[in-house]
Design a protein around this nucleic acid. Structure first.
Lengths: 150, 150
DNA sequence: TATTGTTATACTCTATAACTATA
DNA sequence: TATAGTTATAGAGTATAACAATA
């Protein structure tokens, strides 16, 4: 256990909040500027990854999982469909729903990405943080996750 | 020291990267939807806070510190000037530069914000994380900072 | 010639509102 | 009537390019 901070005061929490907000923006800008041709946005990548991890899903399900509106997710999904990475098939019993899943091209994209270590964020984490710090960052993810949960 | 993870493999690093990217987007969307009237954007808040912490600065200095272009920072700063929270005064010796600093209204805004604990992010950190977890999150900030550094 | 800052313009992401189709 | 999804439109945030003023 870390012992550096006995218990953050509310001023320290505010400082963390302010810093996190600033870092959020900086990370986002850095991610965008590092994105090359053939790369996809954060939302697009998140969708691809989620479909890989959890299998087929509808637009509404994806929107809910990523904390955005279905209209916005609709645009994200439409782009990925045009790009040929995901495909929508009608739900067998409910005609309103469209089940989205990865195409072979989508699966191949993920694998190629992983093999090539093309991901700027992953490369940077590995290059700039020690293994212990990488673990520390990884351990902080569940905390961030809880912050965005309803 | 945490001992849960002996040394993250490159697959784990990729997983962290993917998760961080998704959480980044979710946090940003949540921050936006929680923003009420009279609130300012992440970039705007970051500028206000930085001026408070480090004193007067130019547009170029602020842009560099936040990792964005001076044209973009110009827009952010222009809005804050219109809102009356910051003011620009000509540099005494270098006529090209404009030194930006907080107005009394800007200082008052920060103080009111703090006193009222109006900040959604700070409130959420305090409400959803234990003191130890708050410290853990705070400790992760320097790691994120190093990721965005050039 | 280099630097500070501004203006014009465009792109991405996301939101709200209104609509269609199916249940 | 409620739900899944689409289309139209708007706004915020940021980028690039071109320019003006000062050093």
């Amino acid at each position: 256990m870390h012992k550096r901070k006995p218990g953050p005061s509310s001023i320290q929490v505010m400082a963390t909040a302010v810093e996190l907000r600033s870092l959020l923006g900086q990370l986002r800008r850095r991610l965008r500027e590092q994105a090359g041709t053939g790369d996809y946005s954060a939302s697009q990548t998140a969708v691809i990854r989620r479909l890989e991890r959890e299998g087929p899903a509808t637009v509404t399900m994806l929107a809910h999982a990523e904390g955005m509106r279905s209209q916005s997710m609709g645009a994200t999904v439409a782009y990925l469909q045009l790009a040929g990475l995901i495909i929508g098939t009608p739900h067998p019993t409910d005609g309103r729903q469209t089940l989205l899943s990865l195409t072979p091209a989508g699966v191949a994209w993920i694998k190629a990405k992983r093999a090539a270590r093309e991901d700027w964020l992953a490369r940077t984490i590995q290059a700039k943080l020690s293994p212990a710090e990488q673990a520390q960052l990884s351990d902080a993810m569940p905390l961030l996750k809880r912050l965005v949960e309803p």
